[in-house]
Design a protein around this nucleic acid. Structure first.
Lengths: 254, 254
DNA sequence: CCCCTCGCTCATGTATACATTACGAGAGGC
DNA sequence: GCCTCTCGTAATGTATACATGAGCGAGGGG
């Protein structure tokens, strides 16, 4: 692991935050704590809290909580309405489409960059392991585990791109799309296509084939996004007709 | 102009901020004021100020200034070192490469999206006008004016993409690359290639040819970024050998 | 019965107060 | 002369105080 590099996107992941992790100042604690609660659904979309209530919830004064809320608002996870408090943003299907669009564009770029650089043996090994574990999870039908591994695979890949700003921005969009992933977790089909595509992408990255990595990941993301949006459509608006002018057509931008 | 849409990236532009624009709260004033000063060079890279000094400079108390500084730090324009104050980030050539890489990836996506949607007559007209004005500026050798128009052209195009989050993130990266553009302003050759490419891109967007818009803008950005980085190399490290392993090779990712 | 206005409350935005602790200077030792 | 340890200062991080003005309800008018 390159020090300082992958740490950004990793630190943005919600899992390793046990809420009272010390060593941070109150503002960062508030930020991570709230982000964790939002991403994991402990703070449901639509929930509204006043700054005072947030401060009481976290056992802090308004100042650090307020600064954390501002940060979350800029990230797009909450919205602050001056007299109405801080509301956890409830993302629509269109929002998810927009988010995935940006996220994918950035990730494709990151993977192409990763392919253009040498990959350290440790990272190679980790990626290979991840792909194998995912295939095993698929075989066992353990979608939740597969999804976590998939997150790891993608963020590890992105961590190799060598562009810290790109990593940071991807981390932000990762947080935005994360709740969508969780929403459809129980509705996913077996991700055999993803597993196949992952192998292709990994081979391209490890062999330094930039064009193949770019094309492979672009195709992977385009397909995976279409699937995810279709499933989200079912979850978010089950009553509506299945017509989806929202979804990008199959061949565009290849 | 779609209300709320292009306003984001436009509002992020530095020009229309006369520093004492009222109607905003102190935090936003501090943010816009500082951002304006940084982008235009009034606050030079490397400048360090304590929170107290910033507050005095802007005639505000520490609280809103601090919140603005945090926002600028997240954007990457300043760095906050706990006991040392707020420092205007001095970007290196590598930073500019990284920034342009993200910026271009996002802009290419935005232009492709713009091509996939109908363009209102007013916007069509505005874009055509801009291209013509740029060609005139090129003919007259007025590079500064051309550069401003180029900014307008690109941001207008991005404003058509219909993805507000994409626009917002592009606006952030626009701010990061802006100082680089200014640095090389006096060193630019006549932008005849850009003018040609702009026509191609505009035609593709107006006719709804997504693939052509994508390819055209990708090529445009790749070439323009190479030129910009080469010029930045001269300006930032004039003594060093002209070897640039940093620059992307000509054909990658096409 | 509905709408409009007036007034009050209280959430926020900003200012200020206070405690902590990192940094640097200075002295002392090697 | 150089390195180290200690101590004081002061910048920040956090808490609190305070003024403003927006939103909501009550009451009155149509």
């Amino acid at each position: 692991m390159t020090p300082g590099g992958p740490a950004i996107s990793r630190a943005a992941r919600p899992r390793p935050v046990p809420s009272q992790a010390t060593g941070l100042n109150a503002r960062d604690r508030a930020y991570h704590d709230l982000r964790y609660r939002i991403l994991t659904g402990r703070l449901a979309p639509g929930t509204t809290l006043l700054e005072t209530e947030l401060a009481a919830l976290l056992g802090l004064s308004r100042t650090p909580v307020r600064e954390a809320a501002i940060r979350l608002a800029e990230e797009g996870l909450v919205s602050i309405r001056p007299r109405h408090g801080v509301t956890v943003v409830d993302l629509t299907l269109v929002d998810f489409r927009d988010i995935l669009d940006v996220f994918s564009a950035l990730e494709v770029r990151a993977v192409a960059l990763a392919a253009s650089r040498p990959v350290e043996p440790a990272a190679r090994e980790a990626l290979v392991q991840l792909v194998q574990k995912m295939e095993r999870a698929t075989a066992e039908g353990d979608i939740a585990r597969w999804s976590d591994l998939d997150d790891d695979f993608h963020s590890t890949l992105v961590g190799l791109c060598g562009n810290p700003r790109l990593q940071r921005t991807i981390g932000e969009y990762w947080g935005l799309q994360y709740r969508g992933r969780r929403l459809i977790l129980t509705h996913r089909p077996l991700p055999t296509a993803s597993d196949t595509e992952h192998r292709v992408i990994l081979d391209a990255v490890l062999s330094g084939d930039v064009a193949a990595a770019h094309a492979g990941h672009l195709a992977h993301r385009a397909r995976a996004d279409r699937v995810q949006l279709a499933l989200l459509h079912r979850v978010l608006s089950p009553a509506e007709p299945p017509v989806l002018p929202i979804l990008p057509s199959d061949k565009e931008l290849t």
